[in-house]
Amino acid sequence: MTALVVTDLTKTYRNGRTALNHIDLSVDAGAFFGLLGPNGAGKSTLIGIVATLVTKSGGQVQVFGHDLDRDPWAVKSSLGLVPQEFNFNTFDTVEQIVLNQAGFYGIPRRIAHIRAEHYLQSLGLWERRKSISRTLSGGMKRRLLIARALMHEPRLLILDEPTAGVDIELRRSMWDFLRHINAQGTTIILTTHYLEEAESLCRDIAIIDEGRIIEHTNVKALLQRLSTQAYLLDVEHLPESLPQLPDFSLRRIDGATLEAEVPRGRPLTELFAVLAQNGISVTSMRNKSNRLEELFVRMLGNKERGKEKEKEENS
């Protein structure tokens, strides 16, 4: 079953800018899906159309088999939106905001109170439920947006850069929470600038650039395309100048950490042996987790180079 099907979706704004150019996309039910792309690529426009905040110029949107044009009621009931910017009433309390949201979706007050307690507890906001929302910290406001979006228990939750400006500790706890609700059956679509976040959370991703989907695949399959693997090594006695190794690329991160790029399929014992010969002993190692970022930069970089080449050829 598919949670979201977007067919030939187009959006041209009144100023003539085309934000989405005949996009096709599908997201499976139960997926944790990442929508990536540089600023202005069309991510928020796509989300805005699905959430009915932006009117489409053409194409179709279906959420769990319900067509947006024919049955917006069913689409909206299935959908929860966590927007990029804070858009709650800054004069209302945390509790009023989530209770009102439930009411807008037709959830009776008695049930809304139970859910409000559950989600505010889960997101660490219960103690602040009587606080006026504008007095919350940035991280709390982000969590309030998530609690509000979950009050009608949507089947599809769309989060537009939910951890922007959130410190690492809080970001990790939000990841855990999102993994938990995804495991319970809620399909999640996430846009983020933190590619480490997408790599850590998402099973499938789409990369959007200049209003077109340039990649739509499984994260693992995408990472397979990297010809090298990157590792972070904690080392002792890192010399001032790094040894030049013909098959491995080394980069100093700090006085005790080294980043090593190893060709895919090459045994790591070779790397350790060469390092040992140069007097560097490795005490621990881990995978570099933002490999997706490298791939992302390469893909967009290739595209830019392709365009420049095309220009040169035309001129």
Partner: peptide, 30 residues
Amino acid sequence: MSDRFAAEGQRYPRSVRLRASWVALKTIAF
């Protein structure tokens, strides 16, 4: 959770929509 939602391509019964709209109206009015 899924039994709360209309099946794929099916519309929600009118009674469900009316009840939800009534709750929504009370919420905005309040």
